[in-house]
């Protein structure tokens, strides 16, 4: 499997990468971790004429805790987030980073690259939509900040202009009585989930004060299940409210049939995942330490 020939450009800075994007036009693509792009190029499903390599730019991979926020450089590898003690403070981030593909892919793949690709099956956007997340995007006109909800436009489509890139992702740390969980069903590690659920709950005793529920791989973009959130918000998290939330989440999902499963099955599956993620999120919000890993076939 050999990609088509392309021109290689090594950017020395993000600014230079932006300049290259505008100069080279539509045939140019950014090379971040490359873990999705390179296989597509090998299969010749993606055939960029120019690749702009971001891997040699220093200072683009970092995790910083500042002003109640976590800041991630766009080139931060999934594995760095998985191993980061700062990121572990927001358990849903660790669930996500540690569950992406396999060790090798996590060592290369980046959070910025994953978000910019906007694959409907990608993990990060689903998880980050449960938190207050902003993407700092750098373009020819300078920098702008885009909330995650506005960043993901459609399958493989983001708010980025052609000559714009993601510089940094910031996540506001949830309050101490907030807890989250991200759970996916995957046939095995190297492939995308069949369905996934990200839940972030803020609890006051047994009452849910705030809820975010986002569904992954069951639509063209991650789906925020607002009705499901309403079912929990202000309610005691019990069998009744949870099953209302699960039902609402299932209704909100809009899956396509593929090799991972039929649409009907994914409807059911995503509900079950939401139910379990709610349970873990609730317990974490109440201070319990809960280990969570994805479900494999």
């Amino acid at each position: 499997m050999y990609p088509r020939a392309f021109h290689y450009h090594r950017a020395g800075s993000l600014k230079e990468a932006v300049a290259m994007l505008s100069q080279l036009g539509g045939e140019a693509k950014l090379l971040a971790g490359g873990q999705s792009l390179i296989p597509l190029m090998k299969l010749r499903f993606a055939n960029p004429g120019h690749l702009i390599d971001l891997n040699f730019i220093s200072g683009t991979s970092f995790i910083k805790e500042e002003d109640g926020r976590l800041r991630f450089g766009a080139m931060t590898r999934h594995a760095e987030i998985e191993d980061s003690s700062a990121a572990k403070k927001i358990p849903i981030l660790h669930d996500c980073a540690a569950g992406i593909a396999d060790v090798q892919v996590r060592n290369r793949g980046t959070i910025g690259g994953s978000l910019a690709e906007a694959d409907p099956s990608g993990d990060w956007a689903t998880v980050l939509m449960t938190l207050h997340t902003e993407l700092h995007c750098l373009g020819n006109q300078g920098e702008r900040t885009v909330p995650i909800e506005e960043f993901i436009k459609d399958a493989y489509t983001t708010a980025l202009a052609h000559d714009e890139l993601v510089r940094e992702i910031t996540v506001r740390k949830p309050s101490p009585n907030s807890g989250g969980a991200y759970l996916a069903f995957k046939r095995c590690a190297p492939v995308y989930p069949t369905a996934s659920a990200a839940v972030q709950l803020t609890m006051e005793g047994e009452t849910c004060r705030e809820a975010r529920i986002v569904l992954g791989c069951v639509g063209l973009t991650p789906i925020r299940a607002k009705q499901a959130e309403s079912a929990l918000r202000g309610a005691a998290v019990n069998e009744k409210s949870v099953s209302a939330a699960v039902e609402a989440a299932r209704t909100a999902s809009d899956p396509q049939p593929d090799m991972r499963g039929s649409a009907e099955y994914k409807h059911t599956l995503v509900g079950a995942l939401v139910k379990r993620a709610i349970d873990v999120a609730r317990r974490r919000a109440l201070g319990e330490k809960v280990e969570l890993s994805h479900i494999y076939a």
């Binding site: 299969l43 046939r187 095995c188 590690a189 190297p190 492939v191 090799m259 494999y296 076939a297």
Partner: peptide, 16 residues
């Protein structure tokens, strides 16, 4: 053929 790659065919791995 819908299972023309390992990523679609998913040969069994250590976690399975």
């Amino acid at each position: 053929m819908l299972t023309s790659t390992f990523s679609d065919y998913t040969p069994i791995t250590a976690v399975n």
